[in-house]
């Protein structure tokens, strides 16, 4: 699989990621100051309402303090988790992000896990029966599904299962003002998770299926499969212990490369269902023009993506001896 960055060794890779992280941090430090006027005029110049003078003064002082601290001070603040205050919610950005993060992780994690499992087994079985009716149907269906954006499937699911049938709630992650405990709460969370999870599952599935199928087709033709057959292994053993293990590798390694797009799609689905994760928070922050919150979310998620991808790169080298050149 072409990930583009495998050709160089780990030191080069680390350097590229470090530079990317620094570039992001510098952009978020520098860009707000390139806005015409200052922070406040940029935010409120078009607005009907005006701030009371003492608040204006306070915000200006806050912005001024940031500027005089310089990039090193900014970095220091960032890494000591001091991410500023949200203008609209009047809370520290850190607090808002850490409240929203678990929901995003729950949604993204469960959708990824489910779609990888289903996609992998379906892909392996489909490749094993290459050319049969189920295989051709599966490939056609998945190719079509690949072309349907999560907004499309999400709105349709919302229309059918929430508005027409009324089986699932249309928004939120829990019933508000309910004090469910234990099992009841768990079921309530699952009930709210169902539709966003279903949408995201449909969005992630085709990629996993097609990749597993392609990897499996490649593995089936390898000489070691002939050996496995000649040794008298049962078809099930041949399929899973010999071929599928090799088809699994690209599926696992692609996770790092796809993480950014997985996250983007999760954020969109959250915004659609008003699921209280980072996506909805971002959506609200944009609607309220809350710049510290927007840049906080963007920065934290991008840096998280960067570090996870880098850690995974290290893991792959351990997983796949061929990469340890």
């Amino acid at each position: 699989m072409d990930t583009g960055s495998r050709s160089q060794g780990l030191p080069g890779l680390c350097a590229a990621y470090l530079l990317a992280a620094l570039a992001l941090l510098y952009l978020s430090y520098r860009l707000p100051r390139l806005l015409p006027g200052d922070f406040l005029t940029a935010l409120y110049s078009g607005a009907e309402a005006s701030l009371p003078p003492e608040l204006k003064e306070a915000y200006r002082n806050q912005a001024e303090a940031l500027i005089t601290r310089g990039f090193v001070g900014y970095l220091n603040d960032f890494f000591t988790l001091d991410w500023g205050r949200s203008l609209a919610f009047r809370k520290p950005v850190r607090e808002l992000i850490f409240t929203a993060l678990p929901w995003t992780l729950l949604l993204l994690g469960s959708a990824h896990l489910l779609s990888t499992l289903v996609g992998f087994f379906a892909g392996v079985e489909s490749a094993w029966r290459k050319g049969s009716l189920p295989d051709r149907l599966g490939v056609s269906l998945m190719t079509i599904l690949e072309g349907i954006p999560e907004i499309g499937s999400g709105v349709l699911l919302l229309l059918v299962f929430s508005l027409s049938l009324g089986w699932f709630p249309a928004a939120g992650a829990e019933t508000v003002y309910s004090d469910f405990t234990g099992w009841q709460r768990f079921l309530d969370v699952l009930h709210h998770l169902a539709l966003p999870l279903g949408t995201l599952f449909l969005a992630y599935l085709p990629g996993n299926f097609l990749l597993s199928r392609a990897g499996m087709l490649y593995a089936i033709n390898a000489p070691y499969m002939l050996t496995a057959k000649a040794k008298g292994n049962s078809p099930l053993r041949q399929r899973y212990l010999h071929a599928a293990r090799n088809a699994l590798l690209p599926v696992v390694t692609r996770f790092g490369v796809r993480l950014a797009s997985l996250l983007t799609r999760a954020l969109t689905v959250e915004a659609l269902y008003s699921y209280p994760g980072l996506g909805s928070l971002l959506c609200n922050a944009i609607a309220l023009r809350d710049l510290p919150l927007i840049s906080g979310i963007v920065l934290v998620t991008s840096l998280a993506v960067l570090s996870i991808t880098l850690i995974l790169e290290f893991a792959y080298q351990k997983l796949d001896p061929r990469l340890r050149a």
């Binding site: 990621y17 530079l19 990317a20 950014a260 963007v298 991008s302 993506v305």
Partner: peptide, 23 residues
């Protein structure tokens, strides 16, 4: 190619988002 590696590592939608929100 090194510039390409850096850009590949960045989640491009996030950068676009930041620029879009600011400017």
């Amino acid at each position: 190619m090194r510039l390409g590696d850096i850009l590949l590592a960045l989640p491009s939608i996030m950068v676009t988002l930041l620029l879009a929100a600011l400017f």
